[in-house]
């Protein structure tokens, strides 16, 4: 268990680090988009590179932010029943959900997107539009980000099991604080 908890902490540190970088992209993409509009209007200057950079950054936010949101329990739940359950039952639901729902989905998507991304890499796929950006890096992001999500799922799983076996008093210290 100690090894597993260490692993979970290491994953949490990784997710947190990636998440903190992603957070700044939110501001950056807004500034880029506003700048885009102003440059185009004021100076008739623009490029598909800037337009594509917007959705590249948007993709980074949600793809990499997915694991961060999981760590902070920010993925929305239908809590009609969930909220009435005990902490133990909630932990059990999360264990079952992670094993049967999240991990298969994340692993399945890695499996499906890997050849797709590799194919793009092998031909050095570009944007079809003039001045556009290379496509392969953003396609590679897909399997990578679902890998991060699967890792965070593993970390959450470890924390729930540790809670259920009594090795951890709570799986989410910040959440407990909010409740208290």
């Amino acid at each position: 268990m100690r090894f597993l908890l260490g692993l979970s902490r290491a994953i949490d540190v990784l997710t947190e680090g990636v998440g903190r970088l992603v957070v700044w992209l939110v501001l950056l993409v807004a500034l880029l988009s506003a700048g885009n509009a102003i440059l185009r209007y004021g100076f008739s200057y623009s490029s598909n590179a800037y337009l594509e950079a917007q959705w590249y950054m948007f993709s980074l936010i949600f793809l990499l932010g997915g694991a961060y949101a999981l760590k902070h329990n920010a993925h929305v739940r239908i809590d009609l029943l969930y909220d009435r359950f005990s902490r133990r039952t909630q932990a059990w639901i999360d264990v079952v959900g992670t094993v049967l729902f999240l991990l298969p989905m994340a692993l399945g998507l890695i499996y499906l997107s890997w050849p797709w991304a590799m194919n793009s890499l092998s031909i050095r796929e570009m944007s079809p539009d003039v001045g556009g950006l290379p496509r392969w890096p953003i396609k590679l992001l897909v399997p990578f980000s679902f890998g991060l999500l699967a890792l965070q799922g593993l970390s959450e799983l470890i924390k729930r099991i540790a809670f259920l076996t009594g090795a951890l008093p709570s799986w989410s210290p910040e959440e407990e604080e909010e409740v208290a």
Binding site: R40, Y45, S46, N48, D129, V130
Partner: peptide
């Protein structure tokens, strides 16, 4: 001139000074 024109058309238009936007 700001024009929505993708692909090869955009390539040529950009060489004429058009600002292609997709």
């Amino acid at each position: 001139l700001k024009m929505r024109i993708p692909g090869p058309g955009g390539q040529v238009m950009s060489r004429l000074g058009v600002v292609p936007q997709v």
